[in-house]
């Protein structure tokens, strides 16, 4: 019988600590598949965030460093400038990237730092237990918006991809999701394209925003979470290419 599915080589044979139905494990696998397909496991360095993915180094079989909350893009800048021929990615959640780390993110983008941000948007703070994120939807309930997010009191959900697309330092930004097989495949293509661009160039930030389910903090069953993402979350965060000035066609 032909083997059609197996664990990617650069994904360590460790049990994930993520909750049932969480999008992180899917994204981890996709990143590892791309690293294997591009044969870059020996020259990839990842930066993990503070958040649910803080111990991502237990899963990725590549060199990893943990950054302080929000500082991923500054740490990645330091690494990439010293080792320009390595492939560098940060793995960051919405709070990390777009609240406490807004300045680091925006300015790394503005300097056109040549690394890839993998931005996990689940519209909630997962690890700390379901507080409001900068990307929490208007009206969405969280432990710090017990009456639903109020635009007047809590501000608006931030569309990070659209925001960063304004800057000349960003070259490729795409919003994807991991709620369905179709979207998962698209996510993988986007990740591959971002890494390929980074490998072939010495300037320009690439970012893949991935809408990711958090059934636990959304207080939904995993199938309901996937449906809610499709029906509600994607209205605020439509999928697709936000910016692409690379000459690279979609990776097949």
């Amino acid at each position: 019988m032909k083997k059609v599915y197996s664990r990617p080589k650069s994904l360590k044979p460790t049990k994930f600590h993520y909750c049932p139905g969480c999008g992180h494990s899917t994204v981890h696998r996709l990143i590892c598949e791309v690293i294997d397909e591009l044969s870059i496991a020996d020259r990839t360095i990842g930066v993990c965030p503070a958040g649910c993915a803080v111990i991502a180094y237990n899963y990725f079989d590549v060199d990893m460093i943990e950054a302080a909350h929000g500082r991923g893009c500054a740490v990645a800048t330091g690494i990439k400038r010293v080792l320009p021929d390595r492939v560098i990615f940060t793995y960051q959640g919405d709070g990390d990237l777009a609240a406490i780390g807004t300045a680091e993110t925006l300015h790394a983008a503005n300097r056109g730092e040549n690394f890839t941000i993998i931005f996990i948007n689940n519209a909630v703070y997962g690890m700390t237990g379901g507080q409001m994120a900068p990307t929490t939807l208007t009206g969405q309930f969280s432990t710090t918006t017990p009456f639903g997010r109020s635009e007047k009191l809590d501000g608006y959900p931030i569309r990070v991809s659209e925001l960063l697309a304004q800057l000349p330092g960003t070259v490729y930004i795409e919003r994807c999701a991991v709620n369905s097989p179709l979207n998962i495949n698209r996510t993988k293509k986007a990740l591959k394209k971002a890494f390929l661009y980074q490998m072939d160039n010495d300037f320009g930030l690439t970012m893949i925003e991935i809408l990711s389910q958090c059934p636990t903090n959304w207080k939904m069953s995993p199938p309901d979470a996937c449906r809610w993402m499709e029906e509600v979350m994607m209205k605020e965060y439509p999928l697709g290419i936000i910016k692409d000035v690379t000459a690279i066609k979609g990776a097949e």
């Binding site: 460093i65 302080a68 500082r71 330091g78 690494i79 010293v82 080792l83």
Partner: peptide, 20 residues
């Protein structure tokens, strides 16, 4: 690198130190 803040600067230094 002229960093965007002192916080960013020290974290860039951390990244550079990790890279040797």
């Amino acid at each position: 690198i002229q960093a965007e803040s002192e916080i960013a600067a020290i974290n860039m230094v951390l990244g550079a130190a990790a890279a040797g």
